[in-house]
Amino acid sequence: MSSRERVLGRVRRALADVPGDARPYEEAVARDYLREHGRRSVPETVDLLAENLADYRAIVHRCADGQLPELLTRLLAAHGSQSVAVPPGLPPNWLKAVDATRVQDRAASTPPELDRVDSVVTGCAVAVAETGTIVLDGSPDQGRRRITLVPDHHICVVRVPDQVVASVPQALERLDPARPLTWISGPSATSDIELDRVEGVHGPRTLEVVLLSGS
């Protein structure tokens, strides 16, 4: 007998006492919890996102569409970045004024090569206000997962209010499970030393989030 058959057989025997439960999944789970916590206007939801991002040590900036290239140039210069990783679908004008060397996100690039890149600039798929989370889904303006992981400085641009949802349930509704997803809430951190939170371990130690409002 294969291990598969053995495990499945054990499961079925273990459940022999369970009465034939015809209740479908939909009835078995009562979803009495809230779709979002509290009622907020759209600007208030964006404010909450900014507040919660900052609470977990992300650096939050706000700017209007036309000011973005200038802001990104300033942030990269302030960080002393010599090179910046660029996802294939990042709007070209975002980095038009940047001095740092642009490193395209290529399938062939190796992790040690990426380790020499100072910063990365991406868009995002959705941002969650209640938890201060940005979610990347590997779309062309975000690139492969590793480019937002190996460089030590990540600047993520969130289009507000379009890409902002209030809650985790609302975020999951917008996301496609078939894509590789990365949920990011602040820079990397650990609670492993005396259960006290310390920011800055393996992922980017600096996370800057730009809340970009419409043109």
Binding site: Y56, G132, G138, A178, R179, P180, T182, S185, S188
Partner: peptide
């Protein structure tokens, strides 16, 4: 677990993705 609104990183993957991971 860590008493956070959300932990810093959550990864979700479905099988393999071409040229990513």
């Amino acid at each position: 677990s860590t008493a956070e609104r959300m932990n810093p990183y959550t990864s979700m993957w479905t099988g393999t993705t071409d040229e990513d991971g």
